[in-house]
Design a protein around this nucleic acid. Structure first.
Length: 728
DNA sequence: GTAGGGTTAG
């Protein structure tokens, strides 16, 4: 009798829980509808029934929780602790369904008793949380469940129907699986849920998409779409980003076209900006600009990201004036440049060495109340370092630290490289040690800068040792590293070892590039081995590596210096054909050799060609022309170029002074000769013995005793090397 | 779901 009453009570107690809402998959695609015969219902849940004593305990616990909710759960629940098992927990949950806070409190207390939460309890609590729209709790519960129970997904499905859950619970589940990187499991869940007629949301699937490799991304995209998932704009953007990151901007562009014809997911600012960034990364400015205009035509306003990609590419290509034009346009269009865009432009001017513009932009940033961050400071330090302003670079470094910003390995490397470029290797290594002490890890870029610094000082052996240590640390040397080292070997005259290192480089999976070849060609050129240089050029071209202006200049210089002027000229023609515009260095090589061969007619011809190509003569050009014309006794030409040179603020070098002064004396232009001789002495430059002798004679003849003696002393000091002493 | 900083050749 008693047992029957208890049983009745028990039934009544548990039948108080009912599912009111219809259960179904939230979204049905046509495909899923068409195969709806294969959709199965969610399983029925048949929880184990409690015995009477258990039901009583559950009832007491539930009542206590509900009635004493203002008290700490521990105080309320601890008295039940000894008898309350995992089963009681599950049995309690139906009575707390409408009160998620109590569900969480009970679970929390149970776990605090160092008892593992059953998968079922976590699954039920997750359903309760999602139904109550408490997604943050749902995420935590699901994550817990997934990490601690292998069968958690099954439990979620098993409890779904009974707990009147909603399909979005599976979005939470799916995302959590993705978040813990169990990507295959996520994919399997997508398929499994389809059998219940549920399609995971595109938003949850996007999280999966973004974590896949490009190939998986593309196949999953196609596969899920086939299965009825309607991907959204964000999904397409992930694909565009994936393709662009793999250097496949053109394929990404096809995706954009696809979006434009697909009403469900039209491209937005991010789609365009991502693709523009992709083209910019590949250096395809025209394509990027085309898209930039294209997006505006479609009524999409470029944002700071969009502008930044273009500003960065222009800066990288040395077109910093155009970059700034873009920057100004951006402001005119009402898009406020942020600290990233400022940093990009600052970096552009730093590469350019234009510190005036850099400081102007820093002011602009301040006026816009934008705060420079580590990247901005690093760009500044880099700009100062590469223009040799190490004192100022250090000051900025300290300023950065005093503002609470921590330099990182990139900041340190910029500063270290500055010292290396100045040849101050002990300062560079001092900073390297400081980095280590502060717990920063120098990387391959840092070591490349250091090795290059050592190489430039001729300390190739030390560089070699450093690079071995670098490798021993597990850092992988890159093409920059090899090229710097090959250059070091070449500069100490060890071409053989340099070529061997190029082979090592290739063996290490780093194909020699245009820097490697140009370095070696330069070495062969300077040692007069033009056949070897030519062989390398052929090898490089066969590999499809395009020569740069530096490559051409190296070779033209080599051919000219070896007296092979015709080959030099042919290369000049060829570079123009290849649309690589020669610069003053190119023409200087040719003019210098024609001067040596005393063929001033050719020199003039090339000079005219240079001017008509719009290439401005540099200081070296004037020195070559003045020396050449002077030696050919063309005083008028020498005079003309000297005047022009002075007006441009360039200076003569010693050999040019000597040649020019000699021709002036020969042509009896003594006043001018004397003026230049004095100018030379003021600048501390040593004239030829011949010139000293002439001026000593003149002064002696004019009875300028004091001046005569002064010049004699000076001539002895500067033109007559002291005989080596045998006394030591 | 999109952007910025450091290393190599004349």
């Amino acid at each position: 009798m008693l047992r029957r009453a208890a049983a009745k009570r028990q039934k009544g107690f548990f039948s108080s829980f009912h599912c009111q809402r219809p259960l179904s998959g939230r979204r049905h695609s046509p495909l899923v509808d068409s195969i709806s015969t294969s959709i199965r219902p969610f399983p029925d849940y048949s929880p184990k029934k409690p015995a009477i004593r258990d039901a009583d305990l559950v009832r007491s616990v539930v009542a206590a929780l509900k009635q004493r909710r203002s008290e700490p759960p521990r105080v309320v629940l601890d008295p039940f602790s000894a008898r309350f098992r995992a089963d009681h927990l599950v049995w309690s949950l139906p009575h707390l369904q409408s009160d998620p806070a109590l569900v969480y409190a009970l679970l929390h207390w149970f776990r605090s008793r160092r008892r593992p939460l059953p998968a079922e309890a976590l699954a039920i609590a997750a359903h309760v949380a999602v139904v109550a729209d408490d997604l943050a709790s749902a995420r935590r519960l699901v994550r817990d469940g997934l990490i601690s129970h292998r069968n958690f997904v099954d439990r979620m499905i098993y409890t779904y129907k009974y707990w009147c859950s909603v399909p979005s619970v599976f979005d939470v589940l799916f995302r959590a699986i993705v978040d813990i990187n169990r990507l295959d499991e996520a994919r399997a869940l997508f398929h499994h849920l389809l059998t219940y007629g549920i399609i995971v949301s595109s938003d949850a699937c996007n999280a999966l998409l973004a974590r896949l490799t490009l190939d998986q991304m593309l196949s999953t995209f196609a596969e899920f779409q086939e299965l009825g998932l309607g991907w959204d704009t964000k999904s397409y953007n992930i694909i565009i980003y994936g393709l662009c990151s793999a250097g496949k901007a053109e394929e990404a562009h096809r995706i954009l076209f696809e979006m434009e014809s697909n009403a469900g997911a039209s491209p937005d600012v991010i789609s365009y900006s991502t693709l523009i960034e992709g083209y910019c990364r590949d250096g395809m400015l025209l394509k990027a600009m085309e898209l930039f205009e294209g997006m505006r035509d479609r009524g999409l306003t470029p944002n700071a990201f969009t502008y930044n990609s273009i500003v960065t590419l222009l800066s990288k290509n040395g077109k910093v004036v155009e970059a700034e034009r873009m920057f100004v346009e951006m402001m005119q269009c009402g898009v406020a440049p942020d600290h990233v865009v400022y940093t990009s432009l600052i970096n552009g001017y730093c590469k350019n060495g234009n510190l005036t513009a850099v400081y102007r932009l820093v002011e602009g940033m301040k006026n816009s109340r934008l705060v420079p961050d580590v990247v901005t400071y690093t760009a500044l330090i880099y700009g100062l370092s590469r223009t040799g302003k190490m004192v100022e670079a250090n000051r900025i470094f300290r300023e950065m630290v005093s503002k609470g910003l921590s330099p990182d390995e990139v900041t340190y490397t910029a500063l270290i490289d500055g010292y290396c470029k100045e040849g101050k290797m002990s300062d560079a290594f001092h900073l390297h040690n400081e980095m280590l002490q502060l717990g920063f890890f120098p990387n391959v870029v840092t070591y490349t800068a250091l090795a290059d610094g050592l190489c430039k000082k001729g300390e190739v052996e030390a560089a070699n040792e450093l690079l071995h240590e670098t490798s021993a640390k597990g850092l992988e040397l890159n093409a920059f590293t090899y090229n710097a080292f090959i250059n070091g070997l070449c500069k100490v005259g060890n071409i053989e070892q340099a070529v061997k290192t190029m082979e090592d480089m290739e063996a290490a999976g780093l194909p020699p590039d245009v820097y490697t070849y140009t370095t070696l060609m330069d070495a062969y050129s300077k040692s007069g081995e033009m056949d070897q240089a030519r062989n390398l050029l052929r090898e490089m071209l066969d590999k499809g590596i395009q020569p740069t202006i530096v490559t051409f200049n190296v070779l033209i210089h080599g051919f000219c210096a070896s007296g092979m002027l015709e080959d030099g000229r042919k290369l000049l023609e060829w570079m123009v054909e290849k649309n690589i515009m020669p610069n003053s260095t190119t023409y200087n090589s040719l003019m210098k050799q024609y001067c040596i061969e005393k063929n001033m007619k050719k020199v003039t011809e090339i000079y005219r060609e240079m001017c008509s190509s719009g290439v401005m003569p540099d200081e070296n050009t004037y020195n070559i022309l003045i020396t050449g014309h002077s030696k050919a006794r063309n005083m008028k030409e020498a005079y003309y170029f000297h005047s022009e040179m002075v007006s441009k603020g360039f200076s003569l070098r010693v050999s040019s002074y000597n040649a020019y002064i000699k021709v002036l004396i020969k042509k009896k232009r003594l006043t001018e000769a004397k003026r230049l001789f004095e100018e030379m002495r003021t600048r501390g430059l040593a004239a030829d013995r011949e010139i000293y002798n002439i001026f000593i004679d003149i002064n002696y003849t004019e009875q300028n005793v004091e001046m005569t003696l002064e010049l004699c002393d000076e001539a002895i000091e500067k033109c007559y090397p002291e005989p080596e002493s045998n006394m030591t």
